[in-house]
Design a protein around this nucleic acid. Structure first.
Length: 862
RNA sequence: GCCGGGAUGGCGGAAUUGGUAGACGCGCCAGACUUAGGAUCUGGUAUCGCAAGGUGUGCAGGUUCGAGUCCUGUUCCCGGCACCA
């Protein structure tokens, strides 16, 4: 439930006049470019200042505008950015728009409006909303991935991938020019490019009219779109070459372990071996992670799509095999994988020779073996693999146990996939699994029957789309070959179309623009477009040097914003949702590594520290959605309570990384807190105006306890911001506010220190109070945003008297107030005089006394 | 099934290396100010009990002078992956 009309705050009821001053400060920050960041080459740049790069995952500017999840991460980074700025850092805190993408195009289909038009309108709305929250972005660095100047460099980086290959010896990307120099043929070179064309089975969505990457299909399926497998000619990026580095180089990153693990599992490294079986004089290679179980292979399975199936199938089995392959081809992904795990398959009639013992085993085809992983063929060891076991049971195939539990001979339940001791395995008998694997691989390699192999689940990145609203490939085709267009022709922009509706065939939409496609020299343009991920793969680099006409980023800007080599990642803090764990975050790392290999960036990783903000649920504890009607619109909250209250509330709800439900009452709570701060500064005049409170006095603080709370607040707030523990920082500032409220006199200096500390959280309110109060007291007044973060005085933190807890046998029995440096003897003697303590030690012998200085005394008595 | 993360009042959540469980806020109760209160200020608020005192951090054990925190087992919730050989 959102607030009913009864509780709506009318204008005269609002607790402090945020509607008057929030827009005022926003306008001032805008016109004065308060948060402009000077980088290398800019006026006012100070290279001696340490840099701090704090980044938000930029939004897709949808028609719905910001939801309350956006300001959660954005406020967190804003607080950090403002705080670092006050601590003398040169802070880069930019914002932009990931503005290519399907929804704009779907909208164009409905309305006929060019996606550029709706995108521009959406961006304008997002910008308005972002500015209404008072974020300290450097708006001069704003970028949109659809901006032609941005598209230019996205295409330029694509061409860099196109003109590079992965050199296995140096384990990094190098220009293909090296291969040309070595006299490689065009075909050989094309087979090595990091961006290449391949005919592969891809995920094609007829209703979206495009193919999708493996990483994307889940998302679109969940939105009700269909996808099907289809062999198509597509552009691919050779991300698999980076599989190992993408795993290894996670180590140096300050990322949540869960996200690292997610990426590792997605890349899916497996160690094992290839084993060559012979079938009808043909070699069929299988991949296995358990070469030690080779003696237990009782049949072989090929994926239905395996190219050798047709060749080995006997005539007797031909009809059955053909029928089975047909069913598999028509099965959707869901039918084949997610829903139906029942085993199915057909015998090919062929037999394979097990290289290690010459045994003849039947060859089957079954859809539980995938063409896309390993070699598309397996040796089945039903005794030690659950899937093979299930299959063997169903088709009554033999099962041979070749691994026993720790005590050889003990029969364990099958299938058993745990390591153990090899049995029934010839020369492996008696070896532990790890040793048996090694020995078998040695045997295979010695006898030319196989070799060690590391396999990854990660596939190459399917990079082309058939839709309109994306970067066109800067490629032309002539005589059946692809060619890069010249850098001088960039950006290559798509022409407007009359009709954006997908044709229902895999033909790219841009084919409709026949004049654009056909070039005078007889070559034709590539008509696929890039996926939305392309723009987000490098936007954090462009922010560093957003208007550079000559390069995607200048060397100087890149070096300065990468820092002095203390870390492996460029961005110091990156905040965004978990949903990008294996998509954007993997793709961007890949591009960054290519740029690193080719000398364009100086760090191997883009994002040093990553924090995932937790999802904000609706007031009903459910995920916010239009259909549930539990969506909270930030515009409404700003109108009712103001930007500062929204910022504060989102930070006060709970830990940043935690999933937490929205509570409109909580917004009222922080709004009341801000109003209390306002009332410390001002008293209301009879005409409704505000005058600076008479309690504020520019005198030395005589109230030691108040002074202690203020300095405690300076200390704790700073420490908590560093830890991103914003909720506890706010809690401390509330305590401080309560102390000021109750004080007879509010000392000006301490009050301004408090405002400074609160400023990153509630910038409008604090600036307004500061400006008005300073004007009256005649103090020099530069804005708080230009003020240094206050330092706390450790001496002010010390309490003269402290409370010591006295426990008897671990139970709290007494509290003693003693001098802060009271020693054990002192506390002990006081405790042993206490009637409450004596009551519980009465008749017992004191065995032991534990003293924790400044904390507690525990008397052990029995 | 596998891999992560979590479980603390009526609610959101606090709790340094193990050392006063429930900070702060919401809600609720009482009081003050007031023509009024849905504003503000003050006090109270884990639970049982008149009290003394007892009991309490999903559940069952363990280590310890002392456990929300460490160990073992277990249940439930959330997220991710899911025939990857």
């Amino acid at each position: 439930m959102v607030r009913g009309p009864q509780t709506t705050m009318s204008d005269d009821r609002k607790p402090y006049p945020f509607r008057d001053f929030e827009p005022k400060w926003q306008a001032r920050w805008d016109s004065e470019k308060t948060f402009r960041t000077a980088g290398p080459g800019d006026e006012g740049f100070d290279p001696a200042k340490p840099k701090y790069y704090v980044l938000d995952m930029f939004p897709y500017p949808s028609g719905a505008g910001l939801h309350v999840g956006h300001p959660e991460g954005y406020t967190a980074t804003d607080i950090i950015g403002r705080y670092k700025r006050m601590n003398g850092f040169n802070v880069l805190h930019p914002m932009g728009y990931d503005s290519f993408g399907l929804p704009a195009e779907q909208y164009a289909i409905k309305t006929g409006q060019h996606p550029a038009v709706t995108t521009a309108a959406n961006i304008e709305n997002f910008r308005r909303q972002l500015k209404s929250l008072g974020f300290a972005y450097d708006w001069d660095r704003e970028i949109a991935t659809t901006d032609p100047e941005y598209v230019r460099w996205t295409q330029w980086i694509f061409l860099l991938l196109y003109s590079s290959y992965f050199n296995a010896e140096s384990n990094r990307a190098r220009p293909v020019a090296e291969l040309e120099a070595k006299g490689w043929t065009r075909e050989q070179i094309d087979a090595e490019r990091l961006a290449y064309v391949a005919d592969t089975p891809v995920w094609w969505s007829p209703d979206l009219g495009t193919v999708l990457a493996n990483e994307e299909i889940e998302e679109w399926k969940s939105k009700g779109h269909t996808v099907e497998r289809r062999p198509l000619r597509q552009w691919m990026l050779r991300i698999t070459k980076y599989a190992q580095r993408l795993i290894d180089e996670l180590d140096g990153l300050d990322w949540p372990e869960g996200i690292k693990l997610l990426q590792k599992n997605w890349i899916g490294r497996s160690e094992g071996a290839e084993v060559v079986f012979t079938v009808a004089n043909k070699d069929i290679t299988v991949f296995t992670t358990r070469p030690d179980t080779l003696f237990g292979a009782t049949y072989m399975v090929l994926a239905p799509e395996h190219p050798l199936v047709a060749e080995i199938t006997t005539s007797a089995q031909q009809a059955a095999v053909e029928a089975y392959r047909k069913t598999c081809a028509s099965k959707s992904d869901l039918e084949r994988g997610d829903l139906n795990k029942d085993k199915s398959g057909v015998f090919t009639g062929a037999h394979a020779i097990n290289p290690v013992n010459g045994a003849e085993i039947p060859v089957w085809i079954a859809d539980y073996v995938m063409m896309g992983y390993g070699t598309g063929a397996i040796m089945a060891v039903p005794a030690h693999d659950e899937r093979d076991f299930e299959f063997a049971q169903k088709f009554t195939l033999p099962v041979i146990q070749v691994v026993a539990g720790e005590n050889v001979g003990e029969t364990s339940a099958l299938p058993c996939c745990d390591p153990g001791i090899a049995i029934n395995s010839g020369f492996l008998d008696g070896l532990a699994t790890a040793d048996a694997k090694a020995k078998m691989i040695d045997w295979l390699e010695t006898n030319g029957k196989g070799k060690r192999r590391i396999q990854y689940k990660l596939r190459d990145w399917l990079f082309s789309r058939q839709r309109y609203w994306g970067e066109p490939f800067p490629i032309v085709w002539k005589d059946g070959h692809h060619h890069a267009i010249a850098d001088s022709e960039l950006p290559l922009l798509a022409p407007p179309l009359d009709d954006y509706k997908p044709s229902g065939t895999p033909d790219p939409l841009l084919n409709k623009a026949t004049e654009w496609v056909q070039l005078h020299d007889g070559s034709i343009r590539e008509t696929n477009t890039m996926p939305q991920w392309a723009g987000s793969c490098w936007y954090y680099l462009r922010y560093c040097d957003p208007s550079n006409k000559d390069r995607f980023i200048s060397k100087e800007a890149e070096q300065y914003w990468s820092g002095k080599g203390a870390s492996t990642g460029m961005v110091d803090l990156y905040v965004g949702g978990t949903e990008h764990a294996v998509l954007h975050l993997l793709y961007a790392r890949f591009w960054h590594k290519v740029l690193f290999d080719l000398g364009h960036v100086g760090t191997p990783e883009p994002f040093q520290k990553l924090v995932n903000q937790g999802l904000i649920l609706g007031e009903d504890g459910q995920k916010m959605s239009k259909s549930r009607g539990n969506v909270v619109n930030p515009d409404d909250v700003v109108r009712e309570y103001g930007a500062d209250a929204l910022r504060l509330y989102e930070m006060f709800m709970g830990p940043l990384e935690q999933v937490k439900p929205w509570q409109m009452k909580g917004v009222e709570g922080v709004s009341r807190f801000l109003a209390r701060v306002w009332r410390i500064a001002f008293e209301e005049k009879s005409d409704g105006g505000h005058q600076v409170s008479a309690k504020i006095k520019d005198i030395e603080c005589a109230d030691k306890e108040l002074l202690r709370v203020v300095h405690e607040t300076i200390k704790k707030t700073g420490e908590d911001i560093e830890k991103l523990s914003f909720n506890t920082a706010i809690s401390q500032m509330m305590i401080c506010t309560n102390a000021f409220t109750q004080a007879e006199v509010v000392p000006l200096k301490e009050f301004i220190q408090f405002l400074t500390v609160l400023n990153p959280f509630a910038p409008h309110l604090t600036e307004e109070i500061h400006e008005r109060v300073a004007a009256v007291t005649g103090r020099r007044c530069s804005p708080l945003s230009e003020t240094a973060w206050p330092t706390y005085d450790p001496a002010a933190l010390v309490r003269n008297e402290i409370e010591i807890v006295v426990q008897v046998n671990g139970k709290l029995r007494e509290r003693l107030t003693v001098a802060k440096d009271a020693d054990e003897e002192m506390v002990k003697s006081l405790a042993l005089q206490s009637p409450k303590v004596l009551e519980h030690t009465d008749g017992k012998t004191i065995r032991k006394i534990i003293f924790v200085p400044g904390k507690l005394l525990n008397i052990v008595a029995a």
